[in-house]
């Protein structure tokens, strides 16, 4: 996952905004309040993030990179473990998980919805080099879909699952996807 270099001021802004999102329970927080929390002038926030969408995308990327980091997987077959951990981390910060999930669903003007794609492809190619292209895409797409805040949101909202059940079901689904290539290694 690539994270753009942030200045100290930018980090302060994003951290302040993330903190406020958790307190307010919504991303609807004014620039004035964010500036006050970060201890800087409101125009400094505007200079760094001219629009709310700019601010939201930068914040979501920062949250993913600092709070929802994954331990690096060395094999494609380790991915279910990483997904299990990620679900638990999302569950600890529900408001931030919603923000991350939502920014990935904004189409071209949103966050990259599959930030871990290249990494998954490297792992898969190393372990199962001769997979036909359509099948390879399907495996990567399914795993990258499962390894996201959207999984936590959906399992919680649609099935009322708690932390353990979400982690279990997400890891189980990832194992199901991997079963389809297990026979080929």
């Amino acid at each position: 996952m690539t994270v753009p270099e942030l200045s100290g001021t930018q980090t302060a802004i994003l951290a302040a905004y993330a903190e406020l999102i958790e307190e307010v329970g919504s991303d609807d927080v004014s620039y004035r309040v964010i500036a006050r929390r970060a201890g800087i002038a409101e125009r400094t926030v505007f200079r760094n993030y001219p629009t709310r969408v700019d601010l939201l995308l930068a914040t979501a990327a920062w949250i993913e990179a600092t709070l929802f980091t994954r331990e690096e997987s060395h094999s494609i077959f380790d991915i279910p473990l990483a997904i299990r951990d990620a679900m638990q981390r999302y569950d600890e910060r529900p408001e931030l998980a919603h923000v991350v999930a939502e920014t990935a669903m904004r189409g071209v003007s949103g966050a990259a919805p599959s930030p871990g794609r290249a990494h998954l492809e490297r792992l898969l190619d190393a372990e199962v080099p001769a997979l036909d292209p359509a099948r390879r895409t399907a495996v990567i797409a399914a795993l990258s879909h499962l390894d996201s805040a959207g999984t936590w949101v959906t399992f919680r909202r649609e099935f009322g699952m708690d932390r353990r059940d979400i982690a279990d079901a997400a890891a189980w689904a990832a194992e199901a996807v991997l079963d389809s290539i297990r026979a080929r290694t």
């Binding site: 599959s114 499962l146 959207g150 959906t154 699952m161």
Partner: peptide, 22 residues
């Protein structure tokens, strides 16, 4: 587990992720 997986793969989120990310 089966219901949740099928639900999530049939979602608008799946469509959006594959369209934008892939």
């Amino acid at each position: 587990r089966v219901a949740a997986s099928l639900r999530y793969f049939s979602s608008a989120m799946f469509w959006a992720r594959l369209r934008t990310g892939f």
